[in-house]
């Protein structure tokens, strides 16, 4: 194995174009675990952290661009980002321990391709957009469009993510992420939900998006659940409808972390609870 520190994105793309087994390294909290457990090493590991700007959070058009090597801890310490997208930040901050937070990145969480990735439902709900660099140049792609299957994304040959953009927010908007784990920390999500809401002056939901994690081969957007919340103040009936829509959208597996039955039920619970938090953050009083 060789370790290469890339100076810029072009170099990464050029290296990825070569016919070698490459792995990109940002936070390394998935890559190193996999190498260790499988005892399989790529020909080359390409460290992208030294690419200019890739470890920075920058304000852009009222939103924020999160570099691919920005750690969860950095996001948690960024008060304006946290104020704008509290749900996304709390999702990223739930990944692993404080130690893992010191390194883990939101882009890496996406690229790892886990259906249970914490940041992904929050990014979906936030309609986050990934900036992708590749042989054809730079493109912006919605995070949703990159989801593919367990362990893989739709990134093409020699493509990689350099940053993720979280857009500007209107007033009276809020988001939240919640996951269920058997302990209070240190687990992989068994079912999770990201919810983003926009309210009108009367406290009625006018825009909503609901995404679920760990209940299907990839994180999923549940438009039925979002529809159930629009036009309401999150009264009992719409919440019930939201939970039902979530359950209907689930196609989970039985495994060591949870059963189909459990995941299906709890996904709706997480979505409703996240919706209530998002609603409060948007200034609503349920």
């Amino acid at each position: 194995m060789r370790y290469v520190v890339a100076k810029d994105s072009r170099e990464v793309v050029d290296l990825l174009m070569e016919d070698k087994a490459n792995l990109l390294l940002a936070g390394g909290t998935d890559v190193l675990v996999r190498m260790r457990l499988d005892e399989r090493y790529p020909d080359r590991i390409i460290d992208i952290k030294k690419i200019p700007g890739v470890a920075e959070i920058t304000e852009e058009s009222g939103g924020f661009r999160i570099g691919a090597a920005v750690s969860g801890a950095q996001m948690g310490e960024h008060s304006q980002l946290k104020a704008l997208w509290p749900g996304v930040v709390e999702a990223v901050e739930l990944i692993g321990s404080t130690q893992v937070q010191g390194r883990a990145t939101m882009a890496g969480n996406l690229c790892n391709g886990s259906p249970a990735a914490d940041s992904v439902p929050a990014m979906l709900a936030a309609q986050a957009v990934a900036r992708v660099e590749g042989p054809e140049g730079v493109s912006d792609q919605p995070v949703l469009a990159l989801l593919d299957a367990p362990g893989q994304t739709k990134l093409g040959k020699a493509e990689f993510i350099t940053s993720i953009f979280l857009p500007a927010r209107p007033n009276l908007a809020g988001d939240a992420y919640l996951r269920f784990i058997p302990r209070t920390e240190m687990d992989i999500a068994v079912a999770s939900a990201g919810v983003s809401l926009v309210l009108d002056e009367a406290g009625i939901v006018i825009e909503a998006s609901v995404a679920l994690g760990a209940v299907a081969p990839t994180a999923v957007m549940v438009s039925g659940a979002a529809q159930a919340l629009i036009g309401t103040r999150l009264e009992a009936a719409p919440l019930q409808a939201c939970a039902a829509a979530c359950a209907a959208a689930c196609s989970p597996i039985d495994d060591k972390r949870g059963t189909i039955e459990f995941r299906t039920k709890v996904a709706g619970v997480m979505a409703c609870r996240a919706a209530i938090t998002a609603y409060q953050r948007a200034g609503g009083q349920p």
Binding site: R183, T184, E185, M186, D187
Partner: peptide
């Protein structure tokens, strides 16, 4: 054995 690690063999952590 499906859970030979501290990730899925869940011993109590401080926040529990």
């Amino acid at each position: 054995l499906q859970n030979p690690g501290f990730l899925d063999y869940r011993i109590p952590v401080a926040s529990d």
